[in-house]
């Protein structure tokens, strides 16, 4: 289990994160989401031991990440991994094999062939997306207990994204890996993450089950016989509302059934409930925080 308790962390004198408290149970996939510059990458660096928090700690199974032996179970893939131009896939594998003796060369080769990458080719000849595929193959070949991926889908095409998701799921099933993944590709995260953590305003604004969180909100489209008075919605916990003449699209927070009853009481001609995507939930969360 990963336990994050960070009181504060500054970069260049600026407060980046504060009061971060969350846990990630074993065998779960957590999607780390947030707007640009919200501190997702910083949090992952703190979780991987690259940064040491100004105040607080990150623990894996009760042991601090600053202990080198703890990091044997953690594989961190940064958003822009270091590479030397003349290094080949084999060279990178050998370097990482030093630190992760369990790296599986066969699996690495299999994954590279799935990504249609030549193990012997020099990294300088590859695009950013291709280099990322190399490192993802490397990360998955390590079969780590904890896998931390920063902007994992950045620069990947749709086919590769699908392959990566399949391989992450396989790693969780076969090795019981716990995965923390930050990404702006919310539609992809929705398909395979069990948990989410929203970083906003230098802290974890909310975290928990993706499903449960999505159930917090309901979106309805209502059609009235004439343009409604906005005040009729004032008694509801409105997170977002859009008036277009006789039509109203409203996102509400609370128990869906009760909200539905409340909306019916407003006498709309038509009422339709929409399923919110994770992206919608994310936007609603962020908008709520900024309003």
């Amino acid at each position: 289990m990963i336990s994050v308790n960070i009181n504060s962390h500054h970069l260049g004198g600026n407060l980046i994160l504060e009061d971060i408290t969350m846990t990630v149970p074993d065998g779960k996939i957590l999607g780390l989401v947030g707007t640009n510059g919200s501190g997702k990458s910083t949090l992952l660096r703190l979780m991987s031991g690259v940064y040491v928090p100004d105040s607080g700690s990150v623990q894996y199974d009760g042991k601090d990440v600053t202990i080198p032996a703890v990091r044997e179970n953690i594989f961190f893939l940064p958003d822009d991994p270091f590479f030397a131009g003349q290094t080949t896939g084999t060279g990178i594998f050998d370097i990482y094999k030093t630190f992760y003796p369990n790296l599986d060369r066969e699996l690495y080769r299999t994954l590279l062939s799935r990504f249609k990458l030549d193990e012997k080719a020099h990294q300088r000849n590859f695009s950013k997306g291709m280099r990322r595929q190399f490192y993802i193959a490397l990360a998955l070949s390590a079969r780590p207990k904890y896998l931390l991926l920063d902007e994992a889908f950045d620069g990947l095409d749709a086919f590769t994204k699908k392959t990566v998701i399949e391989e992450i799921n396989r790693s969780v099933e076969e090795n019981g890996s716990t995965v923390v993944i930050s990404s702006h590709a919310l539609s992809e995260l929705e398909t395979f993450c069990d948990l989410y953590a929203l970083i906003e305003g230098q802290t974890v604004k909310s975290h928990g089950s993706l499903e449960e969180h999505a159930a917090k909100y309901s979106r309805y489209t209502l059609a009235f016989t004439e343009a409604p008075d906005p005040a009729i919605f004032s008694h509801l916990n409105v997170r977002d509302i859009d008036f277009r003449g006789k039509f109203v699209t409203v996102t509400l927070e609370g128990d869906a059934e009760k909200l539905y009853e409340s909306l019916l009481a407003l006498n709309p001609a038509v009422i339709d409930r929409e399923k919110l995507s994770f992206e919608d939930v994310f936007i609603t969360d962020v908008k709520g925080g900024r309003s």
Binding site: R45, S48, G49, V50, P68, A69, V70, R71, E72, I74, F75, F76, P78, D80, P81, F82, F99, Y100, L148
Partner: peptide, 18 residues
């Protein structure tokens, strides 16, 4: 002195001093 390198190196299971 390369931030990219440290992103990987400092996450490896070896202490900075070592």
């Amino acid at each position: 002195n390369s931030r990219k390198y440290l992103d990987s190196a400092f996450s490896f299971p070896i202490s900075r001093v070592s």
